[in-house]
Design a protein around this nucleic acid. Structure first.
Length: 500
RNA sequence: GGUCCUGUGGCCGAGUGGCUAGGCAGAGCUCUGCAAAAGCUUCUACAGCGGUUCGAAUCCGCUCGGGACCUCCA
């Protein structure tokens, strides 16, 4: 069964066919590094990390490009048009590039915490000013942009008229009709420079106080907020590439504008498959800066937030996100995360035990029904992923396998009930999906030899106490370790395991 | 106002014409010195009202509720 993905462009699930098999080009809109990343940002980067990993698992050679937006997107608050990054820089008394570096580092730290693989190329907007200017020049040359008072605007009206004929109107991605949009745009700065309200900036003239500025054919200024993605995607993935991803909130206008710019320059739609992840909500509302309801990654990992009763491991967040399908909204709450934390621990403990356990006895496969059941559950992993990356269903199947593994561990099911083929299939596929594709890692942190030795010592003392029926001592050891966050478990075979 | 999505049991979430989703929480049992963990069993569903159909949580209509985008936003 072939991989199918939901293409926002066609609003259908489509079979994924790369332009140049086995090569796949994927562009994902990266962060604007003007602030610390929050939980909402985690979703696209984890989602597309799994897409990236899954494509590689299928044997594709993927070039994954994810930009860093470090050139000031301008925002218009009230009367003033200011470079977002410049504004913050003044407030914090930092150089713009110093600020950008700080938040870029923080972003990378967050990505590492989540066990996201680094992209193949991570280009910065400021590093591609030349490419952006070239692209703007091309758009002007073809008559789809005009200069006004040192700024350059894209002529949406003309584009729409000319490309509607070719079946590519402005609005092709978001399903918007340009004429319906005309009277909805609010008051923007320098609005009078535009021929039409729907026109958007390719280049903005920099006001005197603006620190981030570059020389251009139109004077000193800075690039508009859509052109960087068009320029960098074209440079590293070509005029037409396979996948373009990002959050649903970028669909319009950002991706729509990207399509318009790239189509004018390259005479074709830039990407074949447009994938959009849905939002993380909190109390039913989208988590976003403008709503003032964000939980920063550092707050999440430390538990230092009014909504949180405890700290959550990055892998818990990752697992929480993968428990839903990426196109559904995901409602965040402390309770939901607690559920995910427990579920993940149970899953990983079973997985870790199974992977290291020897199954030499498993050659007979006495329980045919069980072997068939397991084989079916495992084979469905791929089927579910191929249906628009339904990680939620894969995880549901894994949880059907977990009790079976635990039953074997507790000797409720004999090892020889499984056949050697089933065991190797299970080991191979569980590793592929849990570790390689989902990128889930064990929460165990105790790989410190000294700590290991100390714990083993306490476990042995407790074992001796138990043999003397000195339960006061044995319980004291267990309870006081528990108070320190170390939980001891007496296993069926007389051994003792612990989790920290 | 325009475009679109959505409403599943205490919570989070799959599913989308007939077949148990799954997780967390709750209840009972087994195991255990006691715990914990684990296993087994189990309760609580498809917003409401109509319609289509042999059959609807799933399709259609209406009503009510929630949300996203149209402005920086993942």
């Amino acid at each position: 069964m072939a991989l199918k993905v939901y293409n926002s462009l066609t609003r259908k699930k489509e079979v994924f066919e790369p332009i140049n098999t086995p090569y796949v080009g994927m562009y994902v809109c990266g962060p604007t590094v003007s602030g610390e990343s929050h939980l909402g940002h985690a979703r696209p980067f984890i989602t597309f990390d799994v897409v990236y990993r899954y494509l590689m698992h299928l044997g594709y050679k993927v070039r994954y490009v994810r930009n860093i937006t470090d050139a000031g997107h301008f925002e218009e608050e009230g009367r003033e048009a200011e470079d977002k990054i410049t504004k913050k820089a003044i407030l914090e008394k930092l150089e713009p590039m110093e600020l950008v570096q700080k938040y870029t580092n923080l972003f990378h730290w967050g990505m590492t915490q989540f066990n996201n693989l680094p992209p193949s190329i991570e280009p910065t907007a400021t590093g591609h000013i030349v490419e952006q200017i070239e692209m703007i020049k091309n758009i002007i040359k073809d008559g789809y942009a005009y200069e006004a008072n040192g700024s350059v605007y894209f002529d949406v009206e003309k584009y729409n008229t000319d490309f509607s004929v070719k079946g590519q109107p402005y609005g092709i991605l978001s399903g918007r009709i340009l004429d319906d949009q005309l009277d909805t745009t609010r008051e923007l700065d320098n609005q009078d420079e535009k021929r039409n309200k729907s026109d958007f900036a390719l280049w903005k003239k920099a006001p005197p106080e603006h620190i981030m500025r570059w020389q251009s054919p139109w004077g000193e200024g800075f690039p508009g907020w859509h052109i960087e993605c068009s320029a960098m995607a074209t440079k590293y993935l070509g005029e037409e590439f396979d996948i373009h991803g990002g959050g649903m909130d970028l669909q319009f206008p950002h991706h729509e504008c990207e399509i318009a710019q790239s189509t004018v320059c390259n005479h074709k739609l830039p990407a074949r498959y447009w994938l959009h992840n849905n939002m993380i909500t909190i109390n039913g509302k989208k988590m976003g800066k403008s709503y003032g309801n964000v939980i920063k990654l550092s707050e999440l990992f430390s538990g230092n937030h009014p909504m949180l009763t405890q700290a959550y491991a990055p892998s818990t967040i990752r697992f929480f996100i993968l428990q839903s399908q990426y196109r559904s909204t995901l409602d965040f709450s402390n309770d939901a995360l607690q559920g995910s934390e427990k579920a993940l621990r149970r899953l990983m403990e079973a997985y870790d035990w199974f992977m290291q356990e020897d199954f030499v006895e498993a050659i007979v496969g006495t329980d045919t029904t069980l072997n068939e059941k397991l084989t079916k559950l495992v084979n469905e992993f791929t089927e579910f992923m191929n249906d628009d990356l339904n990680t939620a269903k894969v995880i549901a199947n894994i949880f059907e396998i977990v009790p079976i593994i635990n039953a074997i561990k507790d000797k409720h099911i004999a090892k020889h009930a499984l056949s050697a083929a089933t065991v190797s299939l299970l080991k191979e596929q569980l590793k592929a999906f849990i570790t390689d594709i989902f990128g889930l890692v064990t929460t165990k942190t105790a790989d410190n030899n000294k700590l290991e030795g100390v714990l083993q010592l306490l476990i042995n003392i407790r074992k001796e106490a138990k043999q003397r029926k000195d339960f006061v001592t044995s319980d004291k050891i267990r309870n006081e370790l528990a108070a320190l966050g170390v939980q001891l478990k007496d296993e069926k075979d007389g051994g003792v395991s612990y989790t920290i």
